[in-house]
């Protein structure tokens, strides 16, 4: 790649605004490589410091409800069936039948072919989580590896949107990213975003999964976050849940710092979704603290914050029951989904 023959990129609106009209891969690479570095030790220590916050009583009650309200209840197994998805939806709509004050989760997150079953099962409960309804999120773009041609990825996306998915969780091409082909990663996100367009001109929300466990370094995570936002991501998301490590607090903190910087630069709010590995309420509360102290607590709404988790909700329910009744609960008092 030379300056003489710049590789033009899709003119994504945010990137054009920031980097100028003749958007090229070179300009993008210069921008990403020019970002301030990340000191891993300092980042991890800050995350550890945030993790020492002690959230008690009324704050804890609010936090537990917020975890449920911002949860993408997830099943992403080869063994998924319509029955399994219906069961997941039932849990999403009524997380705790013994306590009608329990909020619903934000969304159910499934593979694309399961979207019709989720939509059907939700029925009238399907809709905007801000209105107390439950959205349907679909993973797409040859999730989790992303190893398919762009055409397949786009078809995957269009299919899920056509089936009624409100949100698309795409994966970036980590191979392309790690080999420095930032333009390719960028263009794919732009294309997938366009594939999120519905017939009526509205768009399904796009969550861009970085798969931070494969990017490995924090500098890479920072560049990929920035790249994804420039390409038009509504949310940036840590992981597929299929690679270890999945979400970690330091990675989430770092991505939130990028979101904060983008907001300070442009006034736009981008959402954040840590996914995979968050199983306990205690752990989840640390994420809420990190959000509140990094981008501000106005981010703690389903439009800007999600947990991608499968078993987290039940632990939160146990904690909720403890707060309500004053005694410890047990796994037989919450439902398996």
């Amino acid at each position: 790649m030379t300056i003489d023959h710049p590789v033009a990129l899709a003119p994504a609106e945010r990137a054009v605004r920031l980097l100028g009209g003749d958007l090229t891969e070179k300009a993008l690479a210069l921008h990403l490589d020019g970002l301030a570095g990340v000191d891993a030790v300092g980042l991890e220590q800050r995350a550890a410091g945030l993790a020492t916050r002690s959230i008690k009583t009324s704050s804890k009650a609010w936090a537990l409800d917020t975890i449920i309200r911002t949860c993408d209840l997830t099943t992403l197994e080869g063994a998924d069936t319509p029955g399994k998805v219906r069961s997941l939806v039932a849990k999403a709509v009524t997380p705790d039948a013994t306590d009608p004050t329990t909020p619903r989760v934000a969304a159910v997150c499934v593979y694309g072919d399961m979207v019709p079953y989720a939509v059907e099962a939700l029925g009238s409960a399907h809709g905007d989580p801000d209105a107390g309804l439950v959205s349907v999120a679909a993973v797409a773009t040859a999730f989790p590896s992303g190893r398919a041609s762009l055409e397949i990825k786009l078809a995957d996306t269009r299919d899920a949107v056509a089936s009624g998915a409100d949100e698309i969780d795409m994966v970036i091409d980590r191979g392309a990213f790690l080999s420095g082909r930032y333009g390719m990663v960028f263009d794919q996100i732009v294309a997938v975003k366009e594939a999120c367009r519905r017939a009526d001109g509205t768009y399904a929300h796009l969550k861009v999964i970085l798969e931070t466990g494969e990017l490995v370094t924090y500098d890479n995570v920072k560049r990929a976050s920035w790249l994804s936002i420039l390409a038009g991501a509504d949310f940036i998301k840590t992981s597929t849940g299929k690679v270890s490590p999945a979400a970690t607090l330091p990675v989430t903190l770092l991505m939130l710092e990028v979101i904060r910087d983008w907001h300070r630069l442009t006034g736009e709010k981008v959402g954040m979704k840590p996914a995979g590995g968050i199983r306990s309420s205690k752990d989840a509360v640390r994420y809420l603290v990190t959000v509140a102290e990094t981008v501000g607590e106005e981010w703690l709404t389903p439009h800007l914050w999600r947990f991608g988790a499968s078993s987290l909700v039940n632990d939160v329910l146990l904690q909720r029951q403890k707060l309500r009744t004053g005694h410890y609960s047990g796994p037989d008092y919450v439902t398996v989904d």
């Binding site: 916050r53 002690s54 009583t57 009324s58 704050s59 609010w62 509140a292 102290e293 607590e297």
Partner: peptide
């Protein structure tokens, strides 16, 4: 009360 005004945790 906002979340950030964490409840007392003495």
């Amino acid at each position: 009360m906002s979340f950030l005004e964490y409840a007392p945790a003495p």
